[in-house]
Amino acid sequence: MDIFGSMKISSSALAAQRSRLNVVSSNLANAETTRTPEGGPYRKRDVIFRSAPMGFDGVLEQAVQGVEVAEIRTNPSPPKLVHDPSHPDADAQGNVALPNINLLEEMVDLTSASRSYDANVTVIKSAKRMALKALEIGK
């Protein structure tokens, strides 16, 4: 693998971080959703990453790995119960089950995903610059 191998690794990370951003925005958008196709309030989704071999050989076989989304898991924590008898989805006691989403957690996840995305873009830029410099040899 050549210099494009490094770009392939970073692009796998860009894809993974982008799906994480998608999940965060889905969680944020549905922070108050009480009705879903599967019934009940929306449940928070979590993205699980795992490293993925990229087909390198030699000494780098184990050391160089890309990243992929292993699964998008539904967070098992219980929904938030809020007392609001006027809500159409309130139960007999007047409690409404709201999604198990913590806005602070989501914002931290959002920032972290965006920073990781930036870091990988920097790596791609650096690989590109190296490749262009190699083209200048002998000029």
Binding site: I9, L60, N120, V123
Partner: peptide, 20 residues
């Protein structure tokens, strides 16, 4: 150096992978 670049790219790509 190109190999090293790949190793570093892999580390940064897996900055959020549990257990990496």
């Amino acid at each position: 150096r190109v190999k090293n670049q790949q190793v570093i790219a892999s580390n940064i790509a897996n900055a959020d992978t549990p257990g990496y």
